[in-house]
């Protein structure tokens, strides 16, 4: 009984991961400019691996495979921010203006008093 409960949780995690990956993919197509698409891409890069790897880890239990899976997850979580930041910075330097523009007015003023 306990075994099948683990199976069910793992199935839900896998399906959830797949669902979030597709949502991120839709966002990738739907959003208007580079920076917003970067945010959509970061859904597929953080939550989807998190859910899918947890689901797979529950399947395999404690083994060498689990170690490697966790290593992949750790590596993805460490590198994707760097890659996103590098892309955003490069686009910024290339002079691509974000949609919505720079809100230095009210937002900037409120941030300076905090």
């Amino acid at each position: 009984m306990a075994e099948s409960l683990v199976d069910i949780i793992s199935m839900l995690l896998l399906l959830g991961g797949g669902l979030f990956a597709v949502i991120g993919g839709i966002g990738l197509l739907r959003f208007p400019d580079v920076y917003t698409r970067l945010h959509a891409g970061s859904i597929t890069d953080t939550l989807a691996p998190l859910l899918i790897v947890s689901g797979l880890v529950l399947q395999s239990g404690f083994s060498l495979l689990t170690f490697k899976l966790l290593l992949i997850l750790l590596f993805l979580l460490f590198t994707t921010p760097t890659a996103s930041h590098a892309t955003a910075r490069a686009a910024m330097i290339a002079g691509i203006k974000p949609v919505g523009g720079e809100k230095t007015g009210d937002k900037g003023a409120s941030s300076s008093n905090t």
Binding site: G27, A40, L50, G100, G101, T104, G108, S111
Partner: peptide, 27 residues
């Protein structure tokens, strides 16, 4: 925090409203 933020962004993807991005500085 990542899980919470993911749910927020996923809702923004699925809703019909256009997104309102902003660029600002934090200390």
């Amino acid at each position: 925090q990542v899980v919470l933020a993911n749910l927020m962004v996923a809702r923004a993807v699925l809703s019909r409203k256009p997104v309102t991005p902003s660029l600002f500085r934090v200390p």
